[in-house]
Design a protein around this nucleic acid. Structure first.
Lengths: 205, 205
DNA sequence: CAATAAAATGAACTACGATTCATATTATTG
DNA sequence: CAATAATATGAATCGTAGTTCATTTTATTG
C-alpha cells in the first residue's frame, strides 16, 4: 500500500530540493559554474551523487534552476527601480535602475560574473540570453516611455536597451574579470556614476 | 646524419601549420568553438589526429592561435578607421570605427559570435578578454583625444570605451543569437545607425 | 639504391564528469 | 512488529574528447 503523499513527505522533498539548490548557488557564487559538478554538489549538500538525480533529472535542469534562482530577484529589483510606485521622471528612474543593477552586481560579484559572463554549456547559454533579455525588456519599456514623454530623444528603444545591458555588463565585468572587484566604496560610486552618465547621455535629447 | 632544416622542410612545416589553422577557422566559422575538436580538425584537414600534435602542443595552444588569427585583422581594421592618415574629427572617426566593427561582425557573423560571445573554456576566455580590451584601447585613445579636442564631454574615457565594446557586441550578437543574422541590407544599416547614434550621443557634449 | 631522419598514422590510453542501478537504509501503514 | 513504499547510497558504467606512442610511410643524404 502506497504512502499518503502529503504530510512530511512533501515538506522533506521540498526542503531537500531547496538544500541542493542553495548548495549549488553557493558553489557557483564562490567558484563559478565551472565548479558546479554533480560530485561537488553532492559533497557540498552532504548527499550521495545519485541523490541529486532524485531531485533533478539532469545537470542541465539543475543548471537552469540555479540560473533562475540566482537571477529572479535581481531582475525584480531592477524592475522595481524602473517602475516605482511614486511617479518620477524617466531620467531619474533610469538612473536608479542602472544603479541598482550595478550595485547588486558588484556586491555579488562572483555570482554576477557567473550569470552574465562565465562560459557555460549551450543549454545555460540559452537561459542567459533570456536573463539578459529580461533586463533589456525593462530598459526598453522605460526608454519607450521616455521618448513618449519627450524626455528622451527619438531612438530605437530596443537597441538602446540592449546597448545598456551590454554597457553595464561589459564595464562591470569586463575590466575586472573573474578576479576580485577589490575597489573602495568611492571607486565603485565613481564607476557607477560614469556608467549612468554614459547611458543617460546616450538616450537623452 | 640529420637533414638540413631549411629548404622544403620549413616550407612544408609552415604550410601544414597554416592548413591546420585555416581548417580550424573554417570549423569555428561554421559551427563554433564547440565543434573544434582535435578529431574534427584532423578530419577537416585530412590528417591523422596525432599529426595535429606535431604542429600544436595542445588544444589550448591551437585555440589561442585560432583566436589570434580570427581577431588580428578585425582589430587592425578598426584601428585604421579610428586613426586614419588624413585628419578627421573625432566624431567622424568614431562613427567610422563603429561602422567597421559592426559591418565586419555582421559579415562574418558566426565567427564574430564565436570570438565575442560563445562559451569557451577558461583558457580562451583569457584570450577573449585581451581581444575585447584591444578594441577598448582603440576607443579609449580616440575618446581621450575627443575630450582633449573639446569635441566630447569630459568623461572617463576608459569606461566609455568599455561601454562601447559592450554596446556593440550586445546589440549585434545579443538579440540575434547564434542563429543566422538574416536581415536585409537596409535593416543592417538601420541597426548600425542606431548603434552609432547611441555611442555618439553618449560621448558628445 | 641503402641507410636513416622526419613526418604521419590511428588505435589505444587517459581523464573527467554525467548518469545509472543494484543494494541498503529509512519511513509508513495496518 | 512485519511488510513494503520511499528514499538514499556510491561504485560502476558510459560517453566524450584530449593526448600518447609504437608502427608505418615518406623524404633526404651519400
Amino acid at each position: 500500500m502506497s504512502y499518503r503523499p502529503t504530510d512530511k513527505t512533501e515538506a522533506r522533498k521540498k526542503s531537500q530540493h531547496a538544500l541542493l539548490l542553495s548548495s549549488a548557488i553557493k558553489i557557483v557564487s564562490v567558484r563559478g559554474f565551472q565548479a558546479l559538478t554533480i560530485g561537488a554538489l553532492a559533497e557540498e549538500a552532504d548527499v550521495a551523487t545519485g541523490t541529486v538525480y532524485k531531485y533533478f533529472d539532469s545537470k542541465a535542469i539543475l543548471c537552469s534552476e540555479v540560473f533562475r534562482l540566482g537571477t529572479e530577484k535581481e531582475v525584480q529589483q531592477v524592475q522595481l527601480a524602473a517602475f516605482p510606485e511614486n511617479s518620477m521622471s524617466c531620467e531619474q528612474r533610469l538612473t536608479n535602475a542602472i544603479a541598482i543593477f550595478a550595485e547588486r552586481a558588484i556586491a555579488g560579484y562572483r555570482l554576477a560574473y557567473a550569470l552574465t559572463s562565465e562560459s557555460v554549456d549551450p543549454i545555460i547559454e540559452i537561459e542567459r540570453r533570456i536573463y539578459r533579455q529580461s533586463y533589456a525588456d525593462i530598459f526598453e519599456t522605460l526608454i519607450a516611455e521616455g521618448i513618449e514623454q519627450n524626455e528622451f530623444r527619438p531612438q530605437d528603444a530596443r537597441i538602446s536597451a540592449s546597448a545598456m545591458v551590454g554597457t553595464i555588463t561589459e564595464t562591470l565585468i569586463g575590466p575586472v574579470g573573474p578576479s576580485t572587484p577589490s575597489s573602495t566604496e568611492s571607486q565603485k560610486n565613481k564607476l557607477i556614476k560614469s556608467i549612468q552618465q554614459f547611458c543617460l547621455h546616450a538616450v537623452m535629447k
